[in-house]
Amino acid sequence: MNNPNTQDIIPTCLSSKTLRLEQICQSQFQPRNYFNEVAMEELAASIKAHGILQPLLVRPIAGNQYELVAGERRYKAAQFLGLTVVPVTVREMTDTEVLQYALVENLQREDLNPVEETEGILQLLEMRLQKDRDWIISLLNHIANGKRGLTDSAVRNREQQVIQEIFSTLGRLSPESFRAHRLPLLKLPPELFEALRYGRIQWTKAKEIAKLQSESERLALLERAIAQALSLRQIQRIVREKKIPRDSAQQQREVEGLLQKFTQFKAWENPDKRNKIESLLTELKQLLSEQD
């Protein structure tokens, strides 16, 4: 799939100038929440030595104020360094164009973590389709089921076309891969979801830790995984070890329940059922003898 070009999704009319930093406000449509501290320090050092080489992209809003569209890392570095004036490129853009541009720019550099990526794409879908998040998720599931022949395949053609256009522009995920591999992370336990949002842990590791039913066990393993930089394989082994005692106890309760039902069984007079029971008892005896 070809990489999208952010120039293809925004108006071409623009002007270059400098603005006072106080004239620029951050955008509500910025999909990024987490900024790596080391990378930010390196960028600040580069700007201090060489200046801002690539202008910030902004759009005019009320009065003499502008909203930041792209270049938030440069904007934050300028604030940190105490700069008062920055170079900018000014463009007239709609809310949808701002969000789409910010998503594409960040996805091209792979700057977004899975939570930011998922929430940003959902927000873009909501804006383009003028529907809420639950409706969007329901539609994605409906489309997937329709392709599998499970539901009426005559899903709303316009909505499907819009969805395909958005994912083609973003150039990273298909609607189905987004539905199957990104939407499930929204159901992560809160502590894992927030750790993933702020880049403290990878998605594959969070998904593995989520297999633990106990909140205290999840929290303990999460902090240990972060502090000790545990690998996915190490986390998988720990999860397996923690699940064994609980699974064994559950199985024992099930066996005890079956035994109680077996003593009350009333079908001994039925030859077919009696033969099946005798066959199962023979297998059980053989299994128990192997443990001696």
Rank of each mutant, 00 (worst) to 15 (best):
I10H: 00
S15M: 12
N33C: 09
S16F: 11
L43C: 11
F29N: 02
A39L: 10
Q28Y: 05
K17G: 08
E37A: 13
A45S: 10
K17D: 13
I10Q: 02
A39M: 06
A49M: 09
I24D: 00
P31E: 12
Q26C: 08
V38Y: 04
T12S: 13
Y34R: 05
M40G: 14
I9S: 04
E22F: 12
C25E: 03
P31T: 15
Y34P: 02
E42T: 00
N36Y: 15
C13I: 14
K17R: 10
K48R: 14
N36K: 14
L19H: 02
F29S: 03
E42I: 01
M40Q: 15
S27D: 03
H50Q: 13
P11R: 15
R32P: 01
L19R: 02
A49K: 09
L19S: 02
Q23L: 03
A49F: 13
K48N: 15
C25Q: 07
C13E: 10
Q26E: 12
A39P: 06
K17P: 10
Y34I: 03
T18L: 02
L19K: 01
S15A: 08
I24Y: 00
S16E: 15
P31H: 10
S16L: 14
A39Q: 12
L21I: 15
Y34T: 04
Q26I: 08
Y34D: 12
P11N: 15
F29W: 13
T12P: 03
E42L: 02
F35Q: 05
S46F: 03
H50L: 05
Q28W: 13
L43N: 08
P31C: 08
C25F: 11
R20N: 05
P31R: 00
E42D: 04
S15Y: 03
L14W: 12
A39C: 10
L43G: 05
Q28C: 08
T18Q: 01
A45I: 09
L14A: 14
Q23P: 01
C13L: 13
L14V: 14
I10A: 06
N33E: 07
R32E: 06
L19W: 01
T18Y: 00
V38Q: 06
Q23C: 02
K17M: 09
T12I: 15
T12K: 13
C13A: 09
K17V: 06
Q23N: 04
I47Q: 03
I47H: 10
I24R: 00
A45G: 11
S16N: 11
T12V: 15
K48Y: 07
K17E: 10
E41N: 04
